[in-house]
Structure formats: structure tokens, C-alpha cells
Nucleic acid binder design. Structure first.
Lengths: 181, 181
DNA sequence: GTCTATACTAAGATAGAC
DNA sequence: GTCTATCTTAGTATAGAC
């Protein structure tokens, strides 16, 4: 379990390759982890940006779409999401920097949306930056507790969490009601 | 780093004991982890409950105090907080159940407060249970990014996050203003 | 209760044949 | 590109003296 918990031998047997053959593709175990995280973080970022583009013109719509896409990625990719959220700290040096940069990019996309919403009077939060962080981490945590079989489906969870996110931003009454219930 | 990353040899050198002497106190490495998590989760729960008791009579005051105490524990105990949030999944069987139970207890304390606030009309959220989870996980994440030296101090972070938490619950205007700015 | 020495196992990684 | 066999290191845990 986890990065140290998963051995290269297990990895070999899961992929069908022999142990040593993995080293023809990746120079080290860390490189394998990097590849996974690199893939995951860029896919998630792309999903978020795509959702924003497809969303309606209003900042509230775009923000909600971004949150739902971010959360949806974790729900659709639970294993990889777990790795992304809890294993990236095992990377070192520039490996780590690269993944952190992708993560920061996602955060800054959200921060900009929030700042825009504050400017236009849709959001009332005095702390756009911290709010973005709080929202992202709140969403990331679904990888810890979400189980496909039990309870809520993807749609419901995404709706509830985007409502949480909007509320957290202190949405002004006129825009809030649009999404309630 | 992490549970698998920390060897018994490192643990020995940090504590000043010899490697083998640890086994006079704990039967296995898992038992050491359990002890840490057990200690942490019960201390945090106690801190939350104490804060609730010391807080004013209003549900908003008690809720805010609970959130700030929960978050404050992580800020005061960053290393142990990291272990508690990201390493408990390495426990197995009843070891795991025990720690999960303590965690659930904290969550249910918060859920009850939220439900009370909803009942009394202070909070408007339709999802008390999920809101409690979202708030706790949002707070837990400070262990990932908080650095003592950089940026905000404990007080500021606790205030901002308890404001986030209250907003997320869709606090009614009359009570919200009491805490803003 | 504390130590040194060591057993045993499994890890990451490599050599070298095919 | 793929394998088997192996090297080297480091891990958890134990034996047994003091």
C-alpha cells in the first residue's frame, strides 16, 4: 500500500512485465511514480480547463463547472487520485517540483475565477487564495472516503460539493438561489 | 518518510533507544503507529470537546470553537497530524477500527452541532453530514501545506477557516455578520 | 531494561543471455 | 525488448549476554 508499500515486484506482476523489464521503461521506482503523477495532474488540469470552457459565460457557472470537474476526476479515478493526493510527497527534487507546479496551476485557475467573481460582486469572500486551497483540499479528500458502492453517486456528490464551494465563497443571495435544491 | 519510510532503526536513533529495546515496549512496528494514532485522535477529540464546553452558549459559538480547536490541533502538532491524516490507512484489522472510531466520534460531534444549528435556524445547509465531513477534511489538509515560518499564523488561519466553515453551512445573515472581518 | 550481534526476509536494481 | 539469475542493501524482528 502506498509508494513504499508497493514493490516493484508487485508492479511487475500487475502489469504482466517481468521485474527487470520495467527498468527498460523507467530508470527507477521514483520515475514510475512521477509518470503516474504527471499523467494524473495534467489530465485533471485539462479536465478542469475543458469544463470551464464548456460552461456558461457567468463566473458562477464556470466556477461550479471547475469544482465539479476537479472532484469528478477523483471520483472517476479513485486509485490514481489516492496516489496523487497522498504519495506525491515521496517525490524529491525536481520530480517533486514538476508535480507541485501542475497542482499549483490548478489552484491558480480556481483562484483567478474566485477573484473574478469577487470583483464582479458575485462572491463575498475576503480570502480568495485561501478559499481556493480550502475548496481543492476538501474535494481531494473524497479519495479517502468515497466508495463506489456505498451511498451517493457521482452526480450528487459533485452537486453537493459545488454548493459547499459556492457557499464557502459567500455567494450573494441573487446568485445563490439559482443552484439551491 | 511515512510509515513504510520510517524504519525502526531511525525510530530507535530518534528516541535514543537501541533498536532492539523498542521491542521491549512495543511488540511490532504497527503497534508503535497505533500508539501514535491512538494518542493523537483522543487528544484531538478531547481538545474539540473542551473547546465546545468553554465556548458561549450559542450554537454558532460552539461550532466555531470546535472547528478552531480541530484545526488548531493540527497546527500545534504538525508532524503527528500528518501521521494521523495520511498514515492511518496502513493500520489493519481492529487496530484500524479503533482509530477510525475515534475519528468518527469527532465527526459526529460536529454533525450534531450542525444539525442543532439547522434546527434552530442558524444554519441553512441541507446536508449536515456531508458538510461535517467536508469541513473536517478541509481542516485536516493544513498538515499538507502549513509551514510555521511562512505566511499566516495560527490565529489567522483558524479564523479564516472557521469563517469558511460557517459560510459553507449557509449561515443566516443575522448571525454571519457577528464574525465577519 | 538495556545492549550487541545476528537471523531472516524482501526490497531496488543490475548482469548478461536470448 | 524480454527474460532468469543474482547482487547489494536495508528492513523487521529475535537471541541471548549483562
Amino acid at each position: 500500500m502506498g509508494f513504499y508499500g508497493a514493490s516493484m515486484r508487485q508492479l511487475a506482476s500487475r502489469t504482466g512485465l517481468s521485474l527487470s523489464n520495467i527498468y527498460n521503461y523507467y530508470p527507477s521506482k521514483s520515475a514510475v511514480l512521477l509518470e503516474i503523477l504527471r499523467e494524473a495532474s495534467s489530465a485533471q488540469l485539462a479536465q478542469v480547463q475543458g469544463a470551464i470552457e464548456r460552461a456558461g459565460p457567468g463566473v458562477v457557472e464556470r466556477f461550479s463547472a471547475a469544482v465539479e470537474a476537479f472532484l469528478g476526476y477523483y471520483i472517476d479515478n479513485p486509485e490514481i487520485g489516492t496516489v496523487a493526493t497522498s504519495e506525491f510527497r515521496y517525490l524529491e527534487g525536481e520530480f517533486r517540483s514538476e508535480v507541485v507546479a501542475a497542482r499549483d496551476e490548478t489552484q491558480s485557475v480556481l483562484t483567478r475565477l474566485i477573484a473574478e467573481g469577487v470583483e464582479s460582486g458575485h462572491f463575498g469572500t475576503p480570502y480568495p487564495h485561501e478559499a481556493a486551497l480550502a475548496i481543492l483540499t476538501m474535494c481531494s479528500a473524497v479519495t479517502v472516503w468515497y466508495r463506489k458502492d456505498g451511498g451517493l453517486g457521482k452526480e450528487e456528490i459533485c452537486q453537493r460539493y459545488s454548493r459547499f464551494a459556492l457557499s464557502l465563497l459567500e455567494v450573494r443571495p441573487t446568485t445563490t438561489r439559482r443552484r439551491s435544491q
